Computed example of a mutant assay.
Amino acid sequence: MADPLHIVCPHCDAVNRVANERLADQPVCGKCTRALFEGKPLDVNSARFTRHISRNDIPVLVDFWAAWCGPCRMMAPAYAQAAGRLEPRVRLLKLDTEASQDIAGLFGIRSIPTIALFQGGQEVARQAGAMDAGSIISWVQSRMRAA
């Protein structure tokens, strides 16, 4: 067996070790026993954002959004649909830029919606503007191949 991947639980934020070949086997958290992947984006605050970005060994896609943003609300169902197709190979997060202005400022988010792909705790790609599910999936897959 190759080195296990570290996967942060979307429920209790515990870091779990999961064999790469077992990601699709519906793994559960060793601490809270809930599913590690549910096929939907995870809403995070600043602290949870940092933990998921820094401790997940799989790529993490973040939707920077705000409740008052019309295009953000329009893209939300497409982002959720993309989560169902990209997990368990990619973790999808949603970060409200109004509630987490520190993170939005740290990453220089100037327009929303903006999606950013992180690998190994580092941002590797960014795209501003609303996208449909197919475009989100294609964008992520092409960036993962390039990385």
Rank of each mutant, 00 (worst) to 15 (best):
R85G: 12
A82G: 03
P10F: 09
A2Q: 10
L42P: 08
G129D: 03
G108W: 08
I103Y: 15
K31R: 15
C32R: 03
A67N: 11
G70F: 02
V8G: 00
A78K: 09
I7D: 06
W68D: 03
A80L: 07
F64H: 00
S142E: 13
E21F: 03
M74D: 03
P27E: 10
T50C: 08
H11Q: 04
A80H: 06
P59N: 00
V44H: 06
A104C: 07
H6R: 15
A78I: 07
A128W: 01
R85V: 14
E38Y: 09
A47V: 15
N45G: 13
T33M: 08
C29D: 04
V15C: 07
R34T: 01
W139A: 06
A24R: 14
I109Q: 10
A147P: 02
L5H: 04
E87A: 14
A80G: 13
R73P: 10
F49E: 10
Q81L: 15
P77I: 08
L36S: 06
R110P: 09
D102N: 13
D102R: 08
A24Y: 13
G129T: 05
A78S: 12
A133S: 14
M131D: 11
R126V: 05
Q141V: 05
A99I: 04
S54F: 02
W68N: 05
Q81V: 14
M144Q: 14
A35E: 04
G30M: 03
R17E: 15
T97I: 09
C32L: 02
A133E: 12
L117Q: 08
F49A: 08
Q127M: 10
P10M: 01
P59C: 08
